[in-house]
C-alpha cells in the first residue's frame, strides 16, 4: 500500500471507537505467545521507579525513523532518555492518526505527566530510559520484536532498576 493510503485509513479508524474495534479485530491475535505468570509487585507506587513504553512510533529527531516501507512494520525500538524536551521528539507511524500526539507527545508517551506524579510523591522516581516502538507489526517484523527487541528492552529496564512499566499503544 502507498503511504498516503495507510495514513488516510488511519485518520478514519482513529476517529471512532467502533471503527477502531473493527480494525482491531482484523489485526487478529498472536495467541501462540502464552502469558507469563504475573511478576510480584516490587514496591509500593510512592517508592516505585517507573518506565514507559509507547507503541506510538515515538523517537528522537536524531534517531533513524521507523521503517514505513515494510508492510510488516518495524520491530526495532528507540531509547528515549528521561528529560528530553518536546522539540526533540518525533513520531513516525502511518497506522494511526497522530496529529494530536504531534502537538503533545504526552498523548501516547506521558513523560511530563510521569515527572509531575514523581514531583508530587505519587511515584518514587522516573526511570532514566524509556522506549519508543511501533505497533501494527506482523510477520518478520513481529519476529524481530519478540525474538530480539523484547529481550533487549527487558534487559535495559532491569539494568535501570525499574519497578513498574506502563505500555501505551499508538
Amino acid at each position: 500500500m502507498p503511504r498516503w493510503w495507510n495514513r488516510f485509513q488511519s485518520k478514519i479508524y482513529s476517529r471512532a471507537w467502533w471503527l477502531s474495534e473493527r480494525y482491531g479485530r482484523r489485526a487478529g491475535s498472536f495467541d501462540d505467545i502464552p502469558l507469563p505468570p504475573l511478576a510480584p509487585v516490587r514496591r509500593p507506587l510512592p517508592e516505585a521507579r517507573v518506565a514507559l513504553v509507547t507503541a506510538g512510533g515515538v523517537h528522537l529527531a536524531d534517531q533513524p525513523p521507523f521503517d514505513m516501507a515494510n508492510p510488516d512494520g518495524d520491530g526495532s525500538f528507540r531509547v528515549i532518555p528521561r528529560g528530553v524536551g518536546p522539540a526533540e521528539l518525533r513520531i513516525t507511524h502511518d497506522y494511526y492518526d497522530h496529529a494530536a500526539a504531534d502537538r503533545d507527545t504526552n498523548c501516547v508517551l506521558p513523560l511530563d505527566r510521569l515527572e509531575e506524579l514523581a514531583r508530587a510523591g505519587e511515584i518514587g522516581a522516573v526511570a532514566p530510559r524509556h522506549v519508543g516502538m511501533m505497533g501494527h507489526l506482523s510477520g518478520a517484523a513481529l519476529g524481530v520484536l519478540v525474538d530480539r527487541s523484547a529481550g533487549e528492552i527487558a534487559a535495559l529496564f532491569r539494568e535501570d532498576g525499574v519497578d513498574l512499566v506502563l505500555a501505551v499503544p499508538g
Binding site: W17, S20, E21, R22, Y23, G24, R25, A27, G28, S29, F30, D31, I33, L35, P36, L38, A39, P40, V41, R42, V53, A150, I153, A154, A155, F157, R158, V162, D163, L164, V165, L166, A167, V168, P169
Partner: peptide, 24 residues
C-alpha cells in the same frame, strides 16, 4: 516480555477487541 524478567507491566488499551485477542 518484560513481565517474565520480574518487572510488572501494565498495558493501556483503547481497542477492546485487541486486548481481548492479545492481552498483556
Amino acid at each position: 516480555m518484560v513481565e517474565s524478567v520480574g518487572i510488572p507491566t501494565v498495558t493501556l488499551s483503547v481497542v477492546r477487541s485487541m486486548t481481548d485477542a492479545t492481552p498483556g
